[in-house]
């Protein structure tokens, strides 16, 4: 785990994600208000905060799914809007129609469409990347299955494989552990840590502070505004958590904390 204080990993290398003075509002209420954040490259970073803190909104704003009132977002030094090929995004899974007629392999192939071109046939190398990605998450025996025939953890693996097949240096995952058990969560985290060790930046929206402390090396603590952003040991101090969760410590008890937000 990194405990260094200097947020820039190496001079000259742009941070994986930098957000400056970002404000986003739904209807009339600001969800993100003048947010600043910086996540250096090569980290396994968590975005933490109570419900309604704007965690998912932040990710959506980065990939352009959510309009922005004002502010600047850069990915590896490029404006986010022109850096979509550097980002692999795994949306929340609650809106997926699990009965949709599509197989594991087809889902992962979607990750290659952008670089291959939307009309051209997938090349042999694309197929290799797809096969490798599926293999990497241990889903090879299931590649011909319709996605509804998988367990919760396996479904999440498929979407991680799709992100992997995009071969982007920055991965954004929105609540990837929702609805999976502790054992699966731990296995998925191993997978993500592996991606980090290969030099990727993995940014995960999560709400379990204990897991973040144990497994992540960077945290952005958010509650409409940035509460803290830095190495886990510093950013998740008791004082910061109290500020983010309004007096209720989020430690090990995210449910207890959420009623405040």
């Amino acid at each position: 785990m990194s405990t260094e204080t200097d947020p820039v990993a190496s001079p000259g290398q742009a941070p994986a994600l930098e957000v400056e003075r970002l404000t986003v509002s739904y209807s009339s209420r600001p969800v993100l208000w003048d947010v600043d954040a910086r996540i250096p490259a090569g980290r396994l970073a968590a975005v933490v905060g109570p419900n309604g803190a704007g965690k998912s909104t932040l990710l959506k704003a980065v990939v352009g799914l959510q309009g922005v009132d004002t502010g600047r977002i850069t990915v590896e030094g490029f404006p986010a809007s022109s850096a979509l090929d550097r980002i692999a995004y795994v949306p929340q899974r609650d809106e997926v129609d699990w009965d949709f007629p599509i197989t594991v392999e087809e889902v992962v192939e979607m990750g290659r469409y952008r670089s291959t071109g939307w009309i051209r046939r997938l090349r042999a190398e694309d197929r290799d990347i797809v096969a490798d990605s599926i293999d990497r998450v241990g889903m090879t025996p299931f590649r011909k299955r319709q996605i509804g025939e998988l367990s919760g953890g396996q479904r999440q693996r498929v979407f991680i494989a799709r992100a992997l097949s995009q071969q982007a240096p920055v991965m954004l995952l929105d609540e990837p552990f929702a609805g999976v058990d502790a054992r699966t969560e731990s296995a998925l985290l191993d997978l993500l840590a592996g991606f980090r060790d290969e030099g990727r930046t993995v940014i995960v929206v999560h709400h379990d502070i204990a897991t973040v402390r144990a497994r992540f090396d960077w945290a952005l603590l958010l509650n409409v505004r940035t509460v803290a952003c830095g190495p886990v040991a510093e950013s998740l101090s008791d004082r910061n958590l109290r500020r983010a969760y309004g007096g209720v410590s989020g430690e090990g008890d995210p449910e207890g904390a959420t009623w405040i937000g």
Binding site: R21, T23, S27, S28, R29, P30, W33, D34, D69, T70
Partner: peptide
């Protein structure tokens, strides 16, 4: 109605910035 409220909020948010 909401557009009006939003416009007001936005100008309010921008001022301190």
């Amino acid at each position: 109605t909401r557009a009006l409220v939003r416009a007001r909020r936005r100008s309010a948010a921008r001022k301190p910035a």
